[in-house]
Amino acid sequence: MSYDIILCGVGGQGTILASKLLANASMDRGLAVKTAETIGMAQRGGSVFSHVRIGEASCPLIGRGRADLIIAFEPAEAVRQLAFLRPGGTVVTSNRPIVPASAMVGGPAYDVKTVMDYLRAKVEHLVVVDADAAARDLGSAKCLNVVLLGAASRACELGLSEQDLLAAIHKLLPQKLWELNERALAYTTKND
């Protein structure tokens, strides 16, 4: 059995680092991990995803309708990946839309209210993170990934504690970023 997580967002948002933090924290707990990432051209502002499978799994990719948790860095990307969520699964999402240039030069428009309403209607276990408030309070927009991981670790049975994730942060990030990410990890505690 494995605990299956999908991380999704827009190229450049830090989904790959988040999946590495999850993987390292799990390995330190003695668990096997397999992951798969979007790498290459799609990273240039395109939709990106990572599949993270913690525990025994024969394959790095997760089937549709089989993910336990979706961590979305962007609300439209949460909807795009929603078909992967199993019934009763959890979604942790940022509420801050990233509007692609395509939506302003003739492509489909981006109506963030409709997107958020849809998520609220469809997902029973939904955790919404106010990304703008987090960026303001923490003084940086770059640690959204860790804010979301913190929220996820408290929202569901990840099997990873905040301490486990903190140890992974210390392992993968330079020391000058530890303090910021420590605050980011605990950021949503008051709202959980």
Binding site: G45, P100, S102, A103, P108, A109, Y110, T114, Y118
Partner: peptide, 10 residues
């Protein structure tokens, strides 16, 4: 499901 913006690499 709502219509989503398309996000080709740019």
């Amino acid at each position: 499901a709502p219509t989503l913006p398309i996000r080709p690499p740019v």
